[in-house]
């Protein structure tokens, strides 16, 4: 068997998947073949390593189907728990998208089913085997999920208990008894290699941080200049407006046009000034977040 024969055989059994997924799998094996060959493997050795293409296809198809089902189940569960308006709209949009793409996948799968070289008996057998494999995976997944849920529940209970203890301790700490013990546990936790958090700045080089800060400060200055400049112009317009209203002899059409003009001009300028202030505040917020908000968790020792 050559590489091409193995891949053709694999492709024959992938017809149950969407075209995009099939392409991904084939390119994955293209890469794998090339990598193994680079390491000095012959075609026969590689094929022996990869195994029967039908079995490979079966595992690919069944795991894809099971993963998709898992995603659907998870989304359903999330939908049941989340009832706010935004999540409903999000779900509605994603459902429309999904039904369109699902419809296209079905059409393409059925047309490829007809085109595949397998005869109908082989096809039925194969599909039955895939379904069995999928069910097996589903069972395992379900068991894992149940166990995880139980663990989560236990953890929550334990956290609640710890929280209560913490509160009790805090009360005692007020009397000054527990300060030493607190310090000790912190040191112990660090020695055990508890995860610690980093700010974004700590994870980047000095130069990157410097450039980032300079850029942000430049934008901040720009925003402030914009806001101050426009602010001054608004101030002048308001004074002019007041003067003209005071000197206005008769309330005719011209006067109304004049009032309308000034209101329009001042409101446009107010919007631009708001924009400038927004930019300035945004930049300062970004700098603050980068240097002071701890977010990135890394295991100690890395």
């Amino acid at each position: 068997m050559t590489e091409k024969m193995w891949k053709d055989e694999l492709k024959k059994y992938l017809y149950l998947l969407p075209v995009k997924e099939e392409r991904e799998i084939l390119s994955y094996f293209d890469e794998a073949f090339a990598d193994y060959r680079d390491q000095g493997y012959t075609d026969n050795e590689i094929i022996e390593e990869f195994g029967d293409p039908k079995e490979v296809a079966k595992s690919m198809v069944s795991s894809y189907l099971d993963d998709n089902q898992a995603i659907e189940e998870r989304e359903e569960r999330e939908a049941e728990s989340g009832t706010n308006f935004r999540s409903k709209i999000k779900r509605g949009i994603s459902n429309i998208g999904k039904s369109v793409s699902g419809f296209c996948d079905k059409i393409s799968a059925s047309s490829r089913k007809k085109r595949t070289d397998l005869n109908s008996e082989d096809r039925d057998n194969y599909e039955r085997e895939v379904e069995e494999a999928r069910k097996k995976q589903e069972r395992v997944r379900e068991e894992v999920r149940e166990e995880e849920e139980e663990l989560r529940k236990l953890k929550k209970e334990r956290e609640e208990l710890a929280h209560e203890n913490e509160r009790a301790k805090e009360e005692k700490m007020k009397s000054g008894k527990y300060v030493e013990i607190e310090k000790e546990t912190k040191e112990k936790k660090f020695a055990e290699g508890k995860p610690r958090t980093y700010t974004k700045a700590e994870r980047h080089s000095f130069l990157t941080n410097l450039i980032y800060t300079i850029l942000m400060l430049a934008f901040f200055a720009l925003g402030i200049c914009l806001a101050v400049g426009i602010g001054e112009s608004i101030f002048r317009d308001v004074i002019k407006f007041a003067n003209r209203v005071a000197n206005c002899g008769a309330w005719n059409g011209d006067a109304i046009i004049m009032i309308g003009y000034y209101i329009l001009m001042i409101s446009i300028q107010l919007v631009v000034m708001g924009l400038g202030l927004g930019i300035a505040v945004g930049c300062i917020k970004k700098i603050y977040k980068r240097f002071f908000v701890k977010k990135y968790v890394l295991v100690k020792g890395k």
Binding site: E24, A32, D35, E49, S59, S63, Y64, D67
Partner: peptide
Amino acid sequence: SYGYKIIHDISPYIEMSEATLYPILRR
């Protein structure tokens, strides 16, 4: 890292093949 290297880094410790790695990476 990439497919071949991942398999060869892991396989001394736990059994892993091309067919099992792909679904994991996708997931």
